[in-house]
Design a protein around this nucleic acid. Structure first.
Lengths: 340, 340
DNA sequence: CGTCTCCTTGAAAACGTTGCCACGACATGC
DNA sequence: GCATGTCGTGGCAACGTTTTCAAGGAGACG
């Protein structure tokens, strides 16, 4: 084993001052003579000393850590969002604790299994779609909470307007001249998420506004869900000329089926996704971008704001979405739609 | 504000026992009468009390946290690896602290900017390609270190055999009957990573073993790099019949160019990637899978092992790679290669 | 020269746990 | 009945910081 890491006492000794003074210097607190400050700084550097957040947290009550709770870590979205959160927290010199709850979520007291209580200054949940009861359980840990990808009244939230997103996407397809526009949704075993519901509603509203009847298919989730749904759509007596998917994963499944079936995109069918997934660019898929990095960054900064009192703990931030035009959408064959 | 969270003292009072006893029960330490144990447990539950790792860490010297250092969080690989690490740490009831160093890495003392010193029990670095000097600086924090995606002598490492991976991939293409096999590598401004170098070597070795001369092109990194390189290959007097890319991102760029140029995959050119990126499945890209989740899981478990003394702190674990056969590779036109 | 103030510094009491030691109760062996 | 364990329990001193308070010294002002 190696030698004990230096403690504040060692620094104090080396600089020839008291503990209090070292503490003051390292915290940047006022009331220390410049010359002494320099000397302490130097001693700390030489010993490559870093304060123990453990110990300081014990007395200040602040841990210098923020917990981020995600359902899963694997999907592309979370890495990107986490990246934004991480950058924002780093600005404020806060550490990021990541909890992937995944399957454990089903267990009754999953919220208590997490050692949050005295161990974090705040909690950020990402795409957790918390029930009111879960929210309250988390409130119980007694730290501020920021919800990402979910809009809960009375609680700090950062989210996108899913409804407006799909409504805009639908409008884009309408502008191109499409009228037979189908929607591929996801179907989950357990629970339909709020975001999922809102996206469908946006599409339906967009169609209704144009006097068209919505046409939506939901088979499963993920790529497979897209494949199944697209299969069903293609086998219709009169297939759609444009398809909007709830998210890129579904669109990719659909795209695969189209490719296999020899249906050309966008010549025969226009295809549109949602999320601007990494792979969407590869497929030249027109999609709706929700800038997950910015969402994360915003959520992180909001958390910092709530912690230092400059932001209200019930602020709601709605992030904009933007249509990314690529090669997978075009006017339907034979028609000359207006460009949007 | 809300009421103070309960402390051990409160639990002790409620259960009518001393602090020591509560501590013993909650730690699962022996020497407590079953009846008392039950009573304390109950009291703790009622107050939904969780021990403060801050305080316990102060005296035990263990923080119950492991730091994971990644260069970036956005690329697909890291989310998946993190997921594995997270699951492994959770098994051992350790928390996961994530540090994204990204750009800050250029800064001289980036390793000191991280509050690791007394704040973590171990450090896991993922795909950091640390220099010997950086390694030592991290050693200085005085906690065990596990390297992922890099094999450093004398230090715990989990990695794949990149050389064998590309060699196998090359063999696969050779088995199909290809002889004009080109390699697309990445070129980074700063530093060529170890893994990058090894992959090229594997390809070169595979070609050499078949008595063929290697043909590699490196333009840039990422999708753009693949596009540029493929462009160059296509404009050759006698283009290759198969292309192996250092990683899927490059292959995707190449795929895009092929699609745009009307070159059919795999009929005219076989294309193969490396990593089994999410989007590789979408493109039906044959690739080499390196199972990042398992890598993460293994690294996490190794870390736990090192911490509780059941694993040596210089263990090396080599993870297997596996070729995922999809639709992007086939025998060259006109030839009848052996199936592998 | 005395008094008042401001600035810098040090001593000591927290913070919430865990480890060690000591104490009592009870059972066992002569 | 007395020495010797063993088991369950409580008391107390750490752990490494921050914070409060008091003390000392240097000027400023009368």
């Amino acid at each position: 084993m190696r030698s004990q890491p230096a403690s504040m006492r060692d620094v104090a000794h080396r600089a020839g001052v008291s503990l209090s003074t070292v503490s003051r210097v390292l915290r940047g607190a006022p009331g220390v003579a410049p010359e002494v400050r320099r000397r302490v700084q130097h001693a700390a550097d030489e010993l490559s000393y870093v304060v123990s957040r453990n110990a300081s947290g014990l007395v200040t009550g602040r841990t210098g850590r923020v917990a981020v709770i995600v359902p899963f870590l694997q999907p592309w979205f979370f890495g990107v969002a986490l990246s934004g959160i991480s950058d924002a927290l780093r600005e404020a010199d806060l550490d990021m604790l990541v909890y992937q709850v995944g399957e454990t979520r089903a267990r009754e007291g999953w919220t208590r299994a997490l050692p949050l209580r005295r161990n974090t200054d705040a909690v950020i949940t990402v795409s957790m779609d918390l029930s009111e009861e879960e929210c309250q359980r988390l409130d119980d840990v007694g730290v501020p909470m920021v919800l990402v990808g979910q809009c809960a009244p009375g609680r700090a939230s950062v989210y996108i307007d899913d409804r407006a997103g799909t409504a805009g996407a639908t409008q884009h397809l309408l502008n191109l001249g499409h009228t037979r526009i189908a929607y591929i949704g996801s179907r989950r075993e357990e629970w339909s998420s709020g975001s999922s519901r809102h996206r469908l509603e946006g599409y339906e509203a967009g169609m209704a506004a144009a006097g068209l009847t919505p046409w939506s298919v939901s088979k499963a989730t993920g790529r497979t869900g897209g494949e199944l749904a697209m299969g069903e759509l293609l086998s219709d007596r009169d297939p759609p000329t444009a398809v909007l998917a709830e998210f890129d994963g579904l669109a990719m499944g659909a795209h695969r089926i189209l490719r296999r079936s020899g249906v050309r995109v966008p010549e025969s069918i226009s295809l549109m996704g949602f999320d601007n997934h990494d792979a969407a660019a590869v497929l030249d898929l027109t999609t709706v971008d929700q800038a997950p990095y910015d969402i994360g960054l915003t959520a992180g900064r909001l958390t910092v704001g709530v912690l230092d009192g400059t932001a209200r703990s019930d602020s709601h931030v709605e992030m904009p979405t933007q249509i990314i035009l690529r090669q997978s959408t075009a006017s339907p064959r034979g028609s000359r739609g207006l460009s949007s």
